[in-house]
Write a protein that binds this DNA or RNA. Structure first.
Lengths: 104, 104
DNA sequence: CTTGACACCTCGGGACGCTAGGTATAGGGT
DNA sequence: ACCCTATACCTAGCGTCCCGAGGTGTCAAG
């Protein structure tokens, strides 16, 4: 599968993962892999900048935490993030049905 | 819906449209709009370069035709294009199920 | 003779995923 | 002691590709 296929959908998926419960970057990567059935095994260079982007947009907030000697930046959804997630799910439905209509 | 959502999926859709029957660029744009239920109303600056890309990759071939005084470049699938279309449909299935798994 | 549909083209900007490189801690194997 | 793996963070730069904007030309309707 082409790599650029992700474009524009990664943000929605990160929102969905963090929407399930606060998570730090590394955990987001693991959840993405798990929930996609192994299809999305994303490099850090893809996910971390996306997390920063979403925080800059005000859809996520972060705070530092420490677990077993390692520092983690834990993200959670803001109110705007929660509502954006709803919209993104609708967009996905629309988009995927449209693609299916063309591909069919 | 974000514009970049298309990334990586446009080529597959163009292949699918031309796979239904030879078509010129403008007609491809119309078919994309029609088959997507109006969701994909793409500008020429998006579709023409994609068509050229696909021809350069050897998935499409083109020839000039004239209809009511207007010149048209008519595209059709090559054998490799036909087989690429099959793969792309499989990729889409995989991709969309993976996204659904994450978004759910 | 102007407007709009048809029909083609390309340049430049912007968005963003990924490679490659960097830092640092914890734990297990040798 | 040393190394490797997993965990955990970061960023610079590259490449891809969608799109806006601009350009050319035909034909029909008003």
């Amino acid at each position: 599968m082409k790599a650029e296929a992700l474009k524009g959908h990664l943000d929605s998926m990160i929102l969905a993962v963090v929407g399930t419960g606060p998570a730090h970057g590394y955990a987001v990567i693991e959840q993405l892999r798990r929930r996609s059935g192994g299809v999305f095994d994303l490099p850090e260079g893809t996910v971390y900048p996306a997390l920063h982007r979403l925080e800059a947009e005000g859809l996520l907030t972060s705070s530092w935490a420490t677990a077993s000697g390692r520092r983690r930046r834990v993200y959670k959804l803001t109110r705007r993030g929660r509502s954006a997630l709803g919209e993104r799910r609708g967009d996905w439905k629309l988009f995927s049905q449209a693609v299916e209509g063309v591909l069919a």
